[in-house]
């Protein structure tokens, strides 16, 4: 009899600890892919920007932005921030009380990718620079490098948007 009771109690405890999954779900940051680095980077007026880099020194080096917006998530602490520097937007995400680079995207043709592609470039120029890998067959290249993506969007066979962002999983 004692054995049966022992088995019952044991079964309850097993049920309790089955499916143990680490931290409980009471929040979260907006990026959990910190381990994968990416070689994507962008240098603007001698300031090098890399994905996942701490944002504070970069923003300090870039100087005052033309405009700035921030947005909170529906329920959690921390703000996603966006800084506009005329030629590009720099976006950050919060993690453990600090901001990190989420990505950047270009707004004019005064800045270019590491392979020389800027807004307004032709489809042929993009194909020559990046090949067909990552081309979706219609209007965009989505290229991955480690924990980062480069997205080049075409509008009527000319580049209309160039965007870098971390991979969020």
């Amino acid at each position: 009899m004692k054995k049966r009771i022992f088995i019952t109690v044991l079964a309850c405890l097993m049920l309790l600890f089955a499916g143990c999954q680490g931290n409980p779900a009471t929040g979260g940051d907006n990026s959990n892919n910190q381990s994968q680095v990416s070689s994507y980077n962008f240098t603007y007026k001698e300031t090098k920007i890399t994905l996942h880099a701490p944002a504070e020194p970069i923003i300090k080096a870039l100087g005052d932005p033309i405009s700035y917006t921030e947005s909170a998530s529906c329920a959690f602490d921390g703000l996603d921030k966006s800084y506009y520097y005329g030629s590009f937007y720099l976006e950050t995400y919060p993690k453990d009380g600090k901001d990190y680079v989420y990505g950047w995207y270009f707004k004019d043709d005064s800045v270019a990718t590491e392979k020389g592609i800027s807004i307004g470039a032709t489809k042929e120029a993009v194909t020559k620079a990046y090949g067909n890998e990552g081309f979706n067959g219609s209007n965009a290249w989505v290229l991955k490098d480690g924990g980062g993506t480069l997205t080049i969007i075409l509008d009527k066979d000319a580049v209309s948007s160039i965007q870098y962002a971390i991979v969020v999983e």
Binding site: A25, G27, G28, D29, S73, F76, V168, E169
Partner: peptide
Amino acid sequence: TGAQSQREAYNRM
């Protein structure tokens, strides 16, 4: 919808 950790927390809510 974004990071899985945050998605799960939203799911729970």
